[in-house]
Simulated scan of single mutants.
Amino acid sequence: MFCSCYPCCRVRPSCTLVNLRAILCQPCADQSQTTLVSKLEALQCHFTWDLDTSRSKLFRCRERFEDFFTEDRHSWLGHIYKLRGFIEYKLGFTEEAQSFFNKATEAFRQMRNADEGPWLVVNYGNLAWLHHHLGDPAESEAYLTKVDTLMKKYQSPAQDELHPEIYAEKAWTFIRFSTDKMLLAADYFQRAIRMQPDMVEWHTYHPGAPGRVSQVKLVSGKGPD
């Protein structure tokens, strides 16, 4: 039995499965970790969107979102749960973070009347990052596989563009969390609506920041960051 980088880390015949992991060479583990991190960094999710995570900002947003949780049919409830999960993680509450991410999955299941769809790509990306930070690479890889499966099954209608569900959620998140990215958020909403014009809430959403998205001058000629 040999490790993938044989001959540098040949396993001795006398070794048992119990101590196999301890014998495998460090380069193998390092390479695996590097590959996992590269996959995580390529995701579109709250962990990769360069959000302002100062504690004062996190506490203000958490307090604001608590008012929404009495509205079970709020059209953005799944998105709120996802952002709340990210906030809880950044504040150091990992169990609460996972709970909110799981609530987001259930909220979308009820709102969309479907067990899966492109709206879960961001949430599965969040869960992949969460399990990575919790030191569980196997579970992180499992969620990366789910993301990959959804991306292949629900491809963007426009070549070289994000899926409209991802554009819309990224735009909503920027509006709720990063007012300095309002112009970019407006552009993302415009892209989402152009590809999927039947989503009423994308047209009518009124952000907490001053002015409607439709009143913000759109940024032209920019692709996804």
Rank of each mutant, 00 (worst) to 15 (best):
K153W: 01
R112Q: 14
A104K: 06
R109I: 02
D148Y: 00
R109Q: 12
N126M: 08
E116F: 06
H133I: 10
A138E: 11
N102L: 15
V121D: 05
L130H: 02
V147I: 04
N102Y: 13
L120N: 04
A97K: 04
N126A: 10
G117V: 04
G125A: 01
L127V: 10
P137N: 07
G92E: 12
F100H: 13
G135F: 05
N102Q: 14
G92M: 12
V122L: 07
K103P: 06
A142P: 12
H131W: 15
A107S: 05
V122Q: 05
L144P: 11
S140Y: 05
S140L: 11
K153P: 00
V121P: 13
T94S: 11
F100A: 14
E116G: 11
A107I: 00
D136W: 03
L127N: 04
V122T: 09
W119P: 03
K103Q: 15
W129P: 14
E141N: 15
E95A: 07
E95R: 11
H132L: 08
A128E: 12
D148G: 02
L120M: 06
A142Q: 10
T149P: 01
P137A: 08
P137F: 09
Y124H: 14
G125K: 02
G135K: 09
P137V: 13
D115A: 13
A107H: 01
T145H: 11
D148S: 15
F108G: 03
A128S: 13
F108S: 02
V122S: 10
K153A: 08
E95I: 03
Y124S: 04
E141A: 12
F101Q: 06
G117R: 09
L120C: 03
D115Y: 11
Y143V: 10
E106C: 03
K152H: 05
L144N: 02
